[in-house]
């Protein structure tokens, strides 16, 4: 009986831990979408797919992404953690920065890109917390 109680307790603890992690990651996406709101008002279409996760504070991450010359793009980075420094930059295939108008909010960072050519670009970002070892993040984008 005691063993069963222990298993239940472990299961509940794991369930709570996992759902909490997902909740925080969702919250990071919510913040990214808050950053997207003014862009939507300017005619940007937000993509439903996005990247997200949990990572060590300050860890730099990069994703490669296809952009089409002729579209304008915006990338929105969000976190659920307070007191964080967010960095976000976009580079072309030669490693040159192509982003413009970086804007930082309390939980967000956004940049705009007019790709000079169609091809693969690299989006580099990080979330650095002053308090916590781990941070959540979500990266979304839109186009017009």
């Amino acid at each position: 009986m005691n063993k069963l109680k222990l298993q239940c307790a472990v299961f509940c603890a794991l369930f709570v831990a996992l759902t909490s992690a997902y909740a925080f990651v969702d919250e990071a996406h919510d913040h990214a979408m808050e950053a997207a709101t003014p862009f939507v008002e300017q005619g940007y279409t937000v993509r439903e797919d996005y990247w997200n996760g949990e990572v060590e504070s300050g860890q730099k991450l990069a994703v490669r992404h296809q952009l089409f010359k002729g579209n304008e793009y915006a990338f929105w980075l969000g976190t659920a953690n307070e007191d964080c420094e967010l960095e976000l930059a976009v580079f072309d295939s030669k490693g040159q920065p192509v982003h413009m108008e970086r804007k930082n909010g309390k939980f967000t960072c956004s940049v705009r890109v007019n790709p000079p050519a169609t091809g693969t670009y690299t989006v580099v970002f990080s979330v650095k917390s002053k308090k916590e070892r781990g941070v959540t993040w979500a990266l979304a984008y839109g186009y017009r």
């Binding site: 990651v25 996406h29 439903e48 797919d49 996005y50 990247w51 997200n52 996760g53 949990e54 990572v55 060590e56 300050g58 860890q59 730099k60 991450l61 990069a62 994703v63 960095e87 930059a89 580079f91 580099v124 990080s126 781990g134 979500a138």
Partner: peptide
């Protein structure tokens, strides 16, 4: 659809894209 990524690894942060 989300692309979820979890990483807790201590990597060297010498040098920077920022």
């Amino acid at each position: 659809k989300v692309k979820t990524f979890y990483l807790f690894a201590s990597l060297m942060l010498a040098g920077s894209a920022f």
